[in-house]
Design a protein around this nucleic acid. Structure first.
Length: 806
RNA sequence: GCCCGGGUGGCGGAAUCCGGUAGACGCGAGGGGCUUAAACCCCCUUGGGCCCGAGUGGCCCGUGUGGGUUCGACUCCCACCCCGGGCACCA
């Protein structure tokens, strides 16, 4: 190791910090660039995923800075929530000191990477000066009718002992610990994200610079369905409402199905012949974990003993209970049309229920339920109409009868934000026997999270056991009252923290709107794909809410989103639990931050998962060693006029500037790095011959400028040593000269019938005629043509000529 | 089942957007130089097969499979297979 990375890296990290190179303020005279990497939760040590993330982020910070932008790149800590709390429990330490120690360690490691931030804006969500504004935001939402408490079946993780948002349940398992989630009926706090469903969906179209797959995932999650809602009478009294996307098939309704938890069920089965059977079925269905319930298979159900009246034809149809109907979607009850729905078909076949087709399938139709379009049949006044028209007619009819109307249904459900865990922001509500739910006055914020001895999860919030926290007085009537003891989901913190960076020390307000008005939207947001739905959807929702209340100047928080791939080793994601981590801290010591950064940039397309190669960092280190040697060795420069070799090398250098610039702009870092390697290899060859000082000097200068955002420490050190300046970071990004970048000769490929038969060195400005002539004059080509007719000559000077013979 | 990605040497990958030299660059491997020796460093070879007069040589095959379009296809179109991810009894 010929260069001392430890010394150089420490030196420059110190310099950038003491010179405050990356600390910024609003500056209307320059274009702004707001660059944010998703803030990490303080796990205690950075891993290669962080390194990848921050390497990309820092490259962009430095590059955009050199391109003349006023770049804000802040850093903070997602320090509340389950991961931080579980980490504390594992280590036996209290969450607060444990979290703060971990933040310290990670801060040092992030600094060691040489990635630069405006640390003056650092924030941490467990800090009362931050979560005070979570509580403020909660009150805003509450007062706008967008935060409410309701009892409903919620997802409960038995291991973490808390409820989870729908978004945190993956395949019926807890997102955090993979424990099967069960349903519980609990009174919980929700944010009414469904009020924003329409806008959250529609505005996805405007997110031009978001990955298509993230947009698709959000669209699916929001899940808009158009159809109708209408009421159905129960024979003998009572009614229920159904939602359908196919009201045009209503004449084919031969039974109805209610979800096992549907509130009407009890009165239907009470005293019926099948009561015992029904109760047993409901018991099983409700107690089944989500994962069992979702397993697609035989449709099962039980007859309630009651009948419903089909409103269009007065037909009496049986009402069943079946767990393939979900309480949480639509109305929890359906009209079943087996002729036009495969699930209903399967159910009808199993229980011997009539099937009436209401859409004429094609003549060659051999399937079961027909879901395609066709003329309506067996449907009285709808007969002959196709789907769109039939839907319009039947909705008009339902409206006339006063029993239903057109309806848009959403898959998206309200965001459950209360958690029965210690490590979060207390919900700022006081319950008073006289006044009901009373918001904590804003002047009394923050509601401090009490320091407790016992913070272990036990099925209800640990705060409930703290009398001095729970017992308070009502802000309204001064009578005795109790506090809410649940804490807020940590995703509440991350849904607005990027606004706070713009005005991080404001203790009068969540932020002064004029400050994020300068920085927002985030120009580049970088993070993992795992946040495609949860965090990004919540952040979009809260941004829209802040927009509506005049706090935000933008409706969408993130103009460009970049989702990086995972780092894998031996085929699986690097993780401590799998024991296959490669510790970045060890590599800082052995190879240096620059070599590690460069390897991350080089290893593959940033969006793709990348397989870790243990020798990869050796390779990038070797490259940096060569750059070091070339820039520091005495090469015995020759005093001579520039010749062909100089022009060629300079031309390559300018072409490299062009390529690296274009590649960085489109996030193709993995091809920008090889371009620099090629240039440095060419420079090496050049220096071995009879180098001319002026040429070598210029090429090294360009090389260092381009390396500056990628491997900043070594680039800065060499820049300074060569007397090019004192602070490379503030130099402008190099321009390329098209004239110099032009190649004088190129290799022209000669094909015969599309196969390469010869290669000629030709001037770059060769004309079509000259190219054709040269091709036909080629010895090798003439050998192939020999005796055959040349039918066509396709010339694409200066790269290719194809001679078509035969 | 539906919706996104993707399939190229021993490995990561390049070329794919916009059809025109497939395998850049790096890793690994093999050979050689330097060295008492090793490390470092440097040089050469490295998709598969074949031919000869052995060169600065030539031919054939080759980008998941099968078709198609084209003078020309890793690239575009159709069908299929496989891998990864997302959604999913959503009415």
């Amino acid at each position: 190791m010929s260069y001392d990375h430890e010394a150089i890296e420490a030196k420059w990290q110190e310099r950038w910090e003491s010179d405050r190179v990356f600390y910024v303020d609003e500056d209307p005279s320059r274009p702004k660039f707001y660059n944010v990497c998703m803030y990490p939760y303080p796990s205690g040590a950075i891993h290669q995923g962080h390194v990848r993330n921050y390497t990309y982020g820092d490259l962009l910070t430095r590059y955009k800075r050199m391109r003349g932008f006023n770049v804000l790149s802040p850093m903070g800590w997602d320090s509340f929530g389950l991961p931080a709390e579980n980490a504390a429990i594992t280590s036996g330490a209290h969450p607060r000191p444990n979290t703060e120690r971990q933040i310290e360690t990670m801060t040092a490691q992030i600094r060691r990477l040489g990635s630069m931030y405006d640390w003056d804006r650092e924030l941490a969500s467990h800090d009362p000066s931050f979560y005070k504004w979570d509580q403020w935001l909660f009150l805003e939402l509450f007062e706008h009718g967008l935060a409410y408490k309701a009892e409903s079946p919620v997802n409960w993780c038995p291991k973490d002992q808390t409820v989870l948002a729908n978004e945190q349940v993956i395949d019926g398992l807890c997102e955090r610990c993979d424990t099967p989630v069960v349903k519980k009926n609990l009174a919980q706090w929700f944010f009414k994200i469904t009020d924003y469903a329409e806008r959250l969906l529609a505005d996805i179209d405007g997110l031009e610079h978001w990955p298509e797959r993230v947009k698709t995932m959000q669209r699916n999650w929001i899940g808009r369905s158009e159809g109708a809602r209408f009421r159905i009478q129960v024979d003998g009294g009572g009614e229920f409402e159904v939602f359908t996307t196919r009201p045009d098939t209503i004449f084919g309704m031969t039974f109805c199905v209610l979800a096992p938890e549907h509130p009407l069920v009890e009165s239907l089965i009470a005293g019926s012949d099948t009561e015992a059977e029904a109760r047993a079925y409901i018991e099983t269905a409700i107690n089944a974990s989500e994962i069992d319930r979702l397993a697609e298979g035989e449709k099962t159900g039980v007859f309630t003993g009651a009948f419903a009246i089909n409103p269009v034809n007065e037909r009496r149809v049986p009402i069943y209970i079946a767990d393939y109907v979900l309480l949480g979607y639509g109305t929890g009850a359906i009209m079943a049309v087996p002729g036009q729905d495969q699930r209903d078909w399967d159910f009808a076949m199993r229980y011997g229920i009539d099937i009436v087709r209401t859409v004429q399938p094609p003549d060659d139709w051999e399937g079961e339920a027909y879901v395609g379009d066709g003329p309506t049949i067996n449907s009285d006044f709808l007969d002959g109409l196709h789907r769109a028209e039939a839907i319009e007619r039947i909705i008009a009819w339902l409206e006339d009868q006063g029993i239903g109307s057109a309806h848009v249904n959403w898959r998206l459900r309200d965001w459950l934000i209360s958690r029965q865990r210690y490590w979060g922001a207390p919900i700022p509500i006081i319950n008073c026997a006289q006044c009901g739910m009373v918001p904590v006055p804003r002047d009394d914020l923050p509601v401090l999270l009490p320091e407790v001895e016992d913070y272990l999860p036990k099925g209800r919030s640990p705060l409930a056991a703290v009398d001095e926290f729970v017992n308070t007085t009502c802000p309204n009537c001064d009578g005795p009252a109790t506090r809410e003891t649940d804490t807020m989901d940590t995703f509440v913190d991350s849904s607005w923290y990027f606004f706070r960076y713009a005005d991080a020390h404001n203790d009068e307000a969540i932020f002064d709107p004029s400050r994020p008005a300068y920085w927002m939207p985030v120009d580049q947001y970088i993070g993992g794909i795992e946040h495609a739905i949860l965090h990004l959807l919540y952040a979009r929702f809260i941004t829209k809410f802040l927009f509506d209340t005049g706090m935000s100047s933008v409706e969408e928080p993130f103009a460009r989103l970049f989702t990086q791939g995972m780092i894998t080793l031996a085929g699986s994601k690097m993780s401590k639990s799998k024991g296959n981590v490669v510790d970045p801290v060890e590599l800082f010591a052995s190879h240096g931050a620059d070599a590690l950064r460069l390897y991350h940039l080089f290893m593959g397309p940033p969006t793709d998962d990348a397989a870790w190669n243990e020798n990869g960092v050796d390779g990038t280190r070797r490259f940096l060693e060569r750059v070091w040697r070339m820039a520091t060795d005495d090469h015995g420069f020759v005093d001579r006029d520039p010749d062909e070799r100089d022009r060629e090398l300079l031309g390559l250098a300018h072409r490299t500037v062009r390529k690296v610039t274009e590649d960085i702009d489109r996030f193709h870092f993995n091809t920008a790095v090889p371009a620099l390697m090629i240039l440095s290899n060419a420079l090496g060859d050049y220096l071995d011959a009879s180098p001319r000082e002026a040429t070598a000097e210029e090429v090294v200068r360009l090389l260092l400028l381009m390396l500056s955002p990628m491997t900043p420490h070594i680039a800065h050190e060499l820049w300074q040593r060569r007397g090019l300046g004192d602070m490379l970071a503030t130099e402008p990004w190099p321009e390329w000269d098209e004239e110099l970048a032009r190649e004088e000769t190129v290799t022209m490929v000669i094909q015969v019938n599309g196969k390469v038969r010869d290669r000629l060195e030709v001037p770059a400005e060769i004309t079509r005629e000259q190219a054709e002539e040269a091709a036909l004059a080629s010895e090798k080509v003439r050998g192939w043509i020999d005796g055959q007719v040349v039918r066509q000559v396709i010339a694409r000077p200066p790269n290719l000529v194809n001679v078509v013979i035969g």
